[in-house]
Design a protein around this nucleic acid. Structure first.
Lengths: 144, 144
DNA sequence: TGCAATCGCTTGCAAATGGCAAGTTATCTA
DNA sequence: TAGATAACTTGCCATTTGCAAGCGATTGCA
């Protein structure tokens, strides 16, 4: 279950070649905003991704340099996943997508306080978030 | 070729329920950044969307309130498409996606000048773009 | 030391979606 | 009034997805 390709030279199209489907950005969300690091944690998200789709997406994200993985030193069965710098750079887009969803999809819910902090000072919010994610994954990174 | 559904209450997931596939955001790109308004114009984009997929996406975008359409008063064969306010609100996300693509997909190309103007003052760039898009579609809008 | 449980996948199969080419209908142009 | 054009629709086949079951490598427990 895999195949990739470039449809055009447009940066939006190139980004969508990697990220344009119903699941990939949910994995990115889990890994950044929700701090998840393991296969089984991603499976627990309420959207219910299938195991074969999840392993396919994790592989693609690694192939394209957005995610890296390594074995858990404390439990050899486990594999830990983390975002690379390239992956962290997706945060601004993810947050704007979240803002749009929160504004226009009435059935969605976000903590108001969070959204207001973001809208009040986007850059500040972003750099705090970057730091938090970077720190939480720094222990995992086998090498970048 | 159609069906929709909500997978969770997360605003990102809700947004992806509508926008999460390889084609939808390319149509949005054509309609906003490239100023296209007609079926045949969307078909001309280099990515080569299929006609059945295009008409499905245009329908979904209308169903969800992101796009509206109306007959061309000068040529009854033609249908004109335009973004609603809800659709215009996708611009910040689209631009961040473009920035990411331009930075991390080496095979993609954007006018450097454009990108620098955006990065220098995002809000200014955005409001100019909003105005431009709104104006170019104002003649189309049957009613909003 | 053995044995069940856990973790991260892979496999098989049916159903949904996408790509391509060939219509179809309404409108316009000559 | 004939032919071209615009926007779709339809049919067919290939690819992708969703779901359930299985598998091999640890690990924790008796």
């Amino acid at each position: 279950m895999a195949r990739q390709e470039q449809r055009s030279a447009c940066p939006i199209a190139c980004a969508l070649d990697l990220l344009g489907d119903r699941w990939t950005l949910l994995v990115v969300r889990d890994m950044t905003l929700l701090g998840k690091t393991r296969f089984s944690e991603f499976l627990e998200s309420p959207e219910g991704i299938a195991t074969n789709v999840l392993s396919d997406r994790l592989q693609r994200l690694q192939d394209s340099g957005i995610v890296i993985s390594g074995k858990d030193s404390e439990d050899g069965r486990r594999v830990l996943y983390a975002m690379t710098k390239m992956g962290l750079d997706l945060l601004p887009m993810m947050l704007e997508l979240a803002v749009w969803g929160a504004k226009h999809r009435p059935q969605s819910g976000v903590p108001k306080e969070l959204q207001e902090r973001y809208l009040a000072d986007k850059d500040q919010f972003l750099s705090e978030l970057r730091e938090r994610v970077k720190r939480s994954s720094s222990s995992i990174l086998p090498a970048e």
